[in-house]
């Protein structure tokens, strides 16, 4: 479903983040992406989400080349991807509910459906009782779970998570990984960039190791 063919990424600054990467993820698979800092984990995820463009090579999603997507097609493509960042990128002037409901509003879903699906997503991450709060009033773990709920509320086919447990204690990190595993059980492809080897071992899933390119 996700395929990289000889993909390289060089930033305008001259930094070579990825070189000649080949990989394949099947639909419904849960995979960990690991490697040292600067190995290009985040870049690889951004390439899949089409937040960056490869300098060389091809990325195929569901058999279609990502390069051929026009600027107008990118938003609808992104709506099929749930991206979770280390900093969950929440809107602090909006409630937890409104943050999670954002992808549904963008998709033009009706208010009733938004209510139903947002509550369901918040229930999955165990934050239903905090839906009216501002994200500023939540702990780091809770904020991360709001980010996860927002990423999954639109029922994406792919979940990309960039160091989702980076700021969390081991217990919370485990809980969040289990949440990802639950979504994967429902058929969602999950790709998680992490350097928490103990947690990766514990999850017992396929792991892709990226090695840092010597510039």
């Amino acid at each position: 479903m996700i395929e990289f063919k000889r993909v390289s990424k060089k930033y305008p600054t001259g930094q070579l983040a990825l070189y000649n990467v080949n990989l394949r993820l099947d639909a419904g698979e849960m995979v960990f992406l690991t490697g040292v800092s600067g190995a290009g984990k985040s870049t690889l995820l951004k390439l899949i989400a089409r937040l960056e463009r490869p300098s060389e090579g091809h990325i195929l999603i569901g058999g279609k080349t990502l390069k051929l997507l026009s600027d107008q097609q990118i938003p609808s493509y992104r709506r099929n991807i749930g991206f979770i960042y280390q900093d969950p990128h929440l809107l602090d002037d909006q409630s937890v509910f409104d943050n999670v409901a954002l992808p549904l509003k963008i998709a033009g879903i009706s208010d009733d459906e938004i209510q139903h699906r947002t509550q369901a997503a918040l229930e999955k991450v165990d934050l239903k009782n905090k839906s009216t709060r501002s994200p500023q009033m939540l702990s780091a773990g809770e904020r991360q779970r709001v980010g996860i709920a927002r990423a999954v509320v639109n029922k994406p086919t792919i979940i990309l998570a960039d160091e989702p447990t980076g700021n969390l204690d081991p217990k919370l990190a485990e809980d969040i990984m289990n949440t990802f595993a639950q979504f994967n059980e429902l058929g969602t492809t999950v790709l998680i960039a992490s350097h928490d080897h103990a947690l990766i071992e514990q999850m017992n899933k396929r792991t892709i190791v990226l090695q840092k390119v010597e510039n």
Partner: peptide
């Protein structure tokens, strides 16, 4: 070069149901 290593093989049956 950038090397990617496939560490564990995934559960094929789970993927089909997914």
């Amino acid at each position: 070069s950038k090397k990617n290593t496939q560490k564990n093989s995934s559960n094929k049956r789970t993927q089909k149901t997914n």
